[in-house]
Amino acid sequence: MSTIAFIGLGHMGAPMSAHLVAAGHTVHGVDLNPAAAAAAAERGVQIVSSVAEALDGADAAITSLPKPEHVRGVYGGIDGILAHAAPSTLLLDTSTVDVETSRWCHAGAQQRGLSFVDAPISGGTAGAEARTLTFMLGGGAADVERAREVVAPMAGNVIACGEAGAGIAAKLVNNMMLFISVMAVSEGSQLAEQLGLDPQVFWDVARVSSADSWALRTWYPVPGIVEKAAANKNFDATFSVELARKDCALAVQAGDDTGVHLPAARLALGQLDDLIAEGLGGKDCTLVARFASPDGTLRGYDPSRDGASAA
């Protein structure tokens, strides 16, 4: 079995690293949040105090971080991964970043004789817990094959997308389509209720009809329909508005860079911006269903329970 450094033990990283431990690997974990580190330790991750310590003797290093600036910070600098990784250590970033940041990681690794694979994931926290994540791999063929073995204990699907940056490009397009789907599911769920349809009956219809989607099956924004949906927990985040806004903005920027017109993605981005402007950035991204409600209220969401205003 291998020794794996895991940097970033949050909602995604904690269950992912735990699956690696369960598969027999030794996992050295790092996280700035003491609570996240403690939770990972309970699942068998050996917590260390620095990136350099995590990399000592590591066969692979995996990062799971919120934003591009965090990835650049962890990879760059005198205390970063690029400065301390051994040539034999395979580097994988599962974070959702812009294509330029991913290429920056690839270039920095290449300059130092290191192997890097962009390895973003899809499936959310539910997929991380169930080890059914989809990994989208970008990099040299030999490195991608090594990465395939590393991520297998966390994955339901592993897809080689192409050369450097292809994985993150696939992820940005995928997430853009997801947020557009969330907007469609939000509007459909509210219209169905206003038309007097039983929510469960309508979901059963949509699930086996042309309206079916991952968002409908996993994140349906009506309580009591999909067990793990945020609608059952006052829309506490499974995928926060702030992170969704980050991902959607990266996709819109990619559209600007390539000349592709993305009107639906811009609508989705605008709704996420509106939630953030209301102080709801920490809630679940499916709370955009509020904008389809006739009066702005949403069944399953009580703003008094989190101190936020839905006005």
Rank of each mutant, 00 (worst) to 15 (best):
K246C: 02
A41D: 07
V97R: 05
A128P: 04
A170K: 00
R43I: 00
S49G: 15
G108Y: 06
R207K: 14
V151D: 07
V45I: 11
M154G: 04
R146W: 08
V252M: 06
C105W: 01
A164L: 03
A35Q: 11
G77L: 10
D93G: 07
L191R: 09
P263V: 13
V151K: 08
A54Y: 09
R146C: 06
D247G: 08
G10R: 08
L90A: 08
G29V: 01
S17K: 01
V74D: 03
L250Q: 12
V201M: 14
A155Q: 02
A41F: 00
G296D: 11
A41G: 12
R245Q: 13
V260L: 15
K233W: 06
L55N: 13
A277S: 14
Q110L: 13
A58F: 13
G138N: 10
A60K: 10
D98I: 03
A155V: 02
A155L: 03
T63R: 01
V117T: 11
T101K: 07
L280M: 15
A169R: 09
V99F: 06
A206N: 08
V158Y: 10
A41M: 00
I62P: 02
T286R: 03
T218V: 15
A184V: 10
H25L: 00
R217V: 01
G300H: 09
T125E: 15
D295P: 05
I81A: 13
G113R: 11
D302H: 10
V144S: 02
G10V: 09
T96M: 07
A249D: 09
C285F: 11
A230I: 07
D284R: 09
E100L: 12
L298H: 13
A308H: 13
S209F: 12
A18H: 00
G138V: 09
L9R: 04
Q110H: 14
S304W: 03
A41R: 07
A142F: 00
Q110D: 15
G73E: 12
L32P: 00
L287I: 08
R266P: 00
L250A: 12
N157S: 13
T3I: 12
G127V: 10
A244E: 02
V260Y: 12
A83D: 14
A169L: 12
H106L: 09
H106E: 14
T26K: 02
V185A: 02
R290E: 08
R207G: 02
L272M: 10
V226C: 07
V222G: 03
D284H: 10
P66W: 05
D79R: 14
C161L: 15
A152P: 03
S213Y: 10
V97A: 08
A40C: 08
L250W: 05
G167D: 01
A265M: 06
M16F: 01
S50G: 13
V74I: 14
N232C: 09
A52I: 03
P223Y: 05
L287V: 06
G77Q: 08
I62W: 02
A169P: 01
G307W: 08
G124W: 05
A36E: 02
G127H: 08
V241T: 15
D284M: 11
D274H: 11
A38W: 04
E242S: 15
F116C: 01
V158R: 08
V99C: 04
K228P: 00
T134W: 00
G10K: 06
Q253T: 11
V208A: 14
G138P: 04
K283Y: 07
T286D: 01
G44R: 00
R305P: 00
S209C: 14
